[in-house]
Design a binder for these strands. Structure first.
Lengths: 197, 197
DNA sequence: ATGATTTTTTGACTTTTGTCAAAAGCCAGC
DNA sequence: GCTGGCTTTTGACAAAAGTCAAAAAATCAT
């Protein structure tokens, strides 16, 4: 399950950072030294509710979802992540407190995994690394805000059409049952919306 | 309207940063030199839709809201901010693109205002400033995520009770009409929920 | 205080979305 | 090609929330 691959696997991760602020060789080396490339099959839980999230993943290949259980024990998906995206349970990873969310792979995945304490060390040792870190956080923050706005402003039907328009690929890779709870509606309602037009 | 006040006004802002990473004297001086303390009365628009958000505000005193207009021209509030909180239109401030949101004061306010290009300069000149910047962004990101989750997971009634429990002061300072759209419900529904219990 | 706003509540009715149960469709493995 | 599990759709009904219009209550300026 753990598998060390050549540095070229880090290309996409590095260019993500590099586009925001030049990533020195030294930091690149440190990142490689403090991470590992892992492969997991689909339907594997990378984090369970109650556990502390202590790893951040960069998705090289595959897809994952973040969800939690509502009071009736039903799963509510809060996010789907794909290639070249960062995968964490925001609340638990940022606070170090036990998670209320689960992280589960949707497909067979290849991931770069960095432990939280290692990442913290990198941030403390290389201050300019925080520049890119800040920018990336801003980006994810923004996505989150758009999501919250849409949940507030739009009806189920409008949310569906917006999602379909923005990320049609999502519907190729994620089941409708999963997408429904992400949209904040029941699976039946989603099915009826889809039939309408 | 513009009013330069003594450095002691910066105390709360500095300690906010200082709690995350030591804020050198030099940076403190630079922040003071690159910002101004302003006073605005209530109901003043700090940002209009269509404009580019180029200022970040730290609220010393007062309250503000962020909202936008839905397709029927009705206001939807997305956030309320109070003392010791940072005030921006996330999307526009981060991307530099025209805002779809408005920022408006709810009360007479005293604010520390920093222009975006000045802030960017500070971030570039003082790399460790990005450490605190990252942490702060993480914090606001997290709040946003909680908000989105609650919009998805809970009914109007549950959202109201959660909000009342978490921030009862909000109801002291913000009208119910404003709170309703923040909760993603109509004013009438909020009124009925409140009567129920 | 008082009249004028503004905010909040109420009532009647409509629309949207949810729930439960069952049927249909799809797909992997034999 | 068949079988069993999973996903998606459908139907009937219930609950939640929205809309519109008007009344009541609270707040503000004079």
């Amino acid at each position: 399950m753990v598998d060390h691959l050549p540095a070229s696997d880090y290309e996409n991760l590095f260019s993500l950072f590099n586009n925001l602020y030049p990533l020195k060789e030294e930091i690149q080396t440190a990142i490689i030294a403090n991470s590992e490339v892992i492969k997991v099959t689909k339907k594997v839980k990378l984090l369970n509710a109650g556990e502390r999230s202590n790893t951040i993943y960069f998705i090289l290949k595959g897809a994952a979802r973040i969800f939690y259980l509502d009071k009736d024990g039903k799963e509510t998906n809060t996010w789907f992540l794909f290639e070249n995206e960062l995968l964490i349970s925001v609340y638990s990873f940022y606070t170090g407190k036990p998670s209320f969310e689960y992280i589960e792979t949707l497909e067979d995945c290849t991931l770069i995994a960095v432990k939280r304490d290692r990442l913290d060390e990198l941030y403390l040792k290389y201050m300019e690394f925080n520049f890119s870190g800040r920018k990336l956080t801003e980006f994810y923050h923004m996505r989150n805000e758009i999501q919250a706005n849409e949940l507030r402003m739009f009806s189920a039907k409008e949310r569906y059409h917006k999602l379909l328009e923005r990320t049609p690929q999502l519907f190729q890779r994620v089941s409708l049952g999963h997408i429904a709870s992400y949209l904040g509606i029941s699976q039946e309602t989603l099915s009826r919306i889809r039939k309408q037009k």
